[in-house]
Design a protein around this nucleic acid. Structure first.
Lengths: 153, 153
DNA sequence: GTCATATAGTTCGACTTCGGACAAGATAGT
DNA sequence: ACTATCTTGTCCGAAGTCGAACTATATGAC
């Protein structure tokens, strides 16, 4: 199909992005009301990713994983380091680069944060159809992948 | 079911919010690369909403529609007014309040913005399954509704 | 080895976001 | 009418975001 989209298709796109933006807004707001020490979702997400995937990665790799500009990641990592949740060390394999390592405190912080968020999650879990959410995740991931790929052309 | 969530359920929630946040980020980035005059997604979204729903509403009503704090809406509206895209007038029915009206320029701006964005949408429309996106929108809207409702308890 | 170019990360500055505090106006109880 | 309380919108200040410009290092061409 080489045809352009109809006005209704555009409207659907806008509606989709609008819902996504509002949910992102709401979840951010909920998270930051719970996280201690003025930590942000960005902080939590990076910690979470370092634990779930692995640490020792470079700031740029993390920036790409989260699809944020590297200047934003610099700032996020500075916040995590200031709070003692990560340690940044020079990358022995590349003098331009650094590596991000979790600290014990960072590991604990993530566990504590999940504990503080669990009440909200439990409550939401009772009101939402979790199966539906689980089903949506891969579709969102696919949409994300396509948008990201399209952007980097 | 009065049972709490499993660790895997929490992980799914985080994954869901993470995907949503990244898509929000990417779409914001795409939009703002196209919008003229340093306009933001927030500006576009408000204009779009004023046209699609109706204008003459108050700042607080708009803040609620977008689930942002009223101080944020104040700032967004100030930006739109500075650019001549809306006009704010006192609300004759309530001396504390104001009403937001579209200007001709605001109407044109939205049309122009859609034109500038259409290339990206067309390209995405060829790579994404539009039917799937259309199917997801109501589910996201429902999730949004539940989260919002839960938050206001 | 030298130089041009590419890449990693930071700094800077303009802007957005948003909680807290506030002023002006509305509303309800008496 | 009077006062206490609520509501609407703004201002302020702290923090996050991110493009542009910069420094330092790596890589490739010769």
């Amino acid at each position: 199909m080489d045809q352009d989209l109809s006005p209704d298709d555009y409207a659907k796109f806008f509606a989709f992005f609008n819902e996504v933006a509002i949910i992102a807004q709401l979840s951010r707001s909920i998270f930051e009301a719970r996280l201690p020490d003025g930590a942000t979702v960005a902080h939590f997400s990076v910690l979470n990713n370092l634990i779930r995937v692995k640490d020792g990665r470079t700031p740029l790799e993390l920036a790409r994983a989260f699809q944020v500009p590297k200047t934003t990641m610099t700032n996020t990592l500075a916040g995590l380091e200031k709070r003692g949740l990560i340690a940044m060390r020079p990358n022995s394999k590349d003098g331009r680069s650094k590596q991000v390592w979790l600290t014990d405190k960072g590991y604990e912080f993530r566990g504590m944060a999940i504990g503080l968020l669990s009440r909200d999650m439990d409550r939401l879990g009772k009101k939402l159809d979790l199966e539906k959410i689980k089903a949506i995740i891969p579709e969102l991931a696919e949409i994300r992948r396509v948008i990201d790929e399209d952007r980097n052309i």
